[in-house]
Lab assay of single mutants.
Amino acid sequence: LQAFIKTLTGKTFTVEMEPSDTIENLKAKIQDKEGIPPDQQRLIFAGKQLEDGRTLSDYNIQKESTLHLVL
């Protein structure tokens, strides 16, 4: 599935991932794409901060969901 990552500066980019991917995997993909170390990334979806060990499906993240990236 493709999801949108929106930063506080208003920049939006897309990442490809599977519902079974962990938040940790997602942070690694963001690092590959944007060069931001995972330990500096905080991802917010539906008002909740996402925990590394959980999966996208745990948070009911669907295709074309928008996640907010806070540094």
Rank of each mutant, 00 (worst) to 15 (best):
A28E: 09
G47H: 05
I61N: 04
G35F: 04
K11H: 13
A28R: 15
I23L: 05
T12N: 06
N60Y: 06
F45H: 08
K63I: 08
S57W: 08
E18K: 14
F4V: 14
L43T: 00
K33N: 05
D58A: 05
L71V: 12
K27L: 02
D39A: 13
T9C: 13
E24N: 07
K27H: 01
I61G: 04
V15W: 02
E51H: 07
D39G: 10
V70D: 06
K48F: 09
T14Q: 07
E18P: 03
E18A: 13
T55L: 11
D39F: 10
G10A: 02
F4G: 03
A28I: 13
Q31T: 08
E34C: 12
T55N: 05
T14E: 07
P38R: 13
I30R: 00
S65I: 14
K63D: 15
M17A: 10
E51G: 04
G47R: 03
Q41G: 02
D52Y: 04
G10L: 03
T55C: 05
Q2M: 14
F13K: 00
V15E: 01
G35S: 04
V70Q: 09
Q31M: 13
Q40W: 09
D39L: 08
P19I: 12
R54P: 03
E16G: 07
T9M: 10
S20G: 11
R42N: 11
I36G: 02
I23S: 01
K63C: 07
T55V: 08
L43E: 00
G10Y: 03
F4K: 12
Q40T: 09
G35A: 04
G10Q: 03
S57E: 11
M17D: 01
K11G: 06
D39P: 05
I61W: 07
L71H: 07
F4L: 12
D32S: 11
L69G: 00
I61H: 05
E24I: 10
E18C: 11
N60W: 05
T12S: 10
K33M: 14
D21M: 10
F4M: 11
T7C: 08
L1N: 06
Q49T: 14
K33H: 13
L50S: 01
K6I: 15
L26A: 01
K29R: 10
L56P: 02
N60T: 06
K29C: 04
K6S: 11
Y59M: 04
G10T: 03
G53Y: 10
A3L: 15
E34A: 13
K27F: 02
G10R: 03
T55D: 03
Q41D: 01
F45D: 00
P37W: 05
T14Y: 11
D52F: 03
L50R: 00
V15K: 00
E18L: 14
Q49E: 15
Q40R: 12
L26P: 00
G35C: 04
T66P: 06
T14A: 09
Q41K: 00
I5R: 00
R42E: 09
R54A: 09
S57T: 08
P37V: 06
Q49P: 11
V70F: 14
Q40L: 12
L67W: 04
S65H: 11
P19Q: 10
L43I: 12
A46L: 11
P38K: 15
K11D: 08
I36W: 15
R42D: 06
D39Y: 12
T9H: 13
Q31P: 00
L1R: 05
Q2H: 12
T55Y: 08
D52H: 05
F45Q: 03
I30T: 00
I30D: 00
I61K: 05
N60A: 08
S20P: 03
T12C: 10
L71W: 10
K63V: 09
L1F: 15
K48V: 14
G35M: 04
T66G: 05
L67I: 15
I5D: 02
E51Y: 05
I36D: 02
L8V: 13
G10P: 02
P37N: 06
Y59H: 03
D39E: 11
I23D: 01
Q62V: 13
E24M: 13
E24W: 14
T9N: 13
T9L: 08
E51Q: 10
K33L: 14
E51W: 04
S65C: 08
Q49A: 11
P38L: 13
P37S: 09
P19V: 11
L71Y: 11
T9Y: 13
I23P: 01
L50E: 01
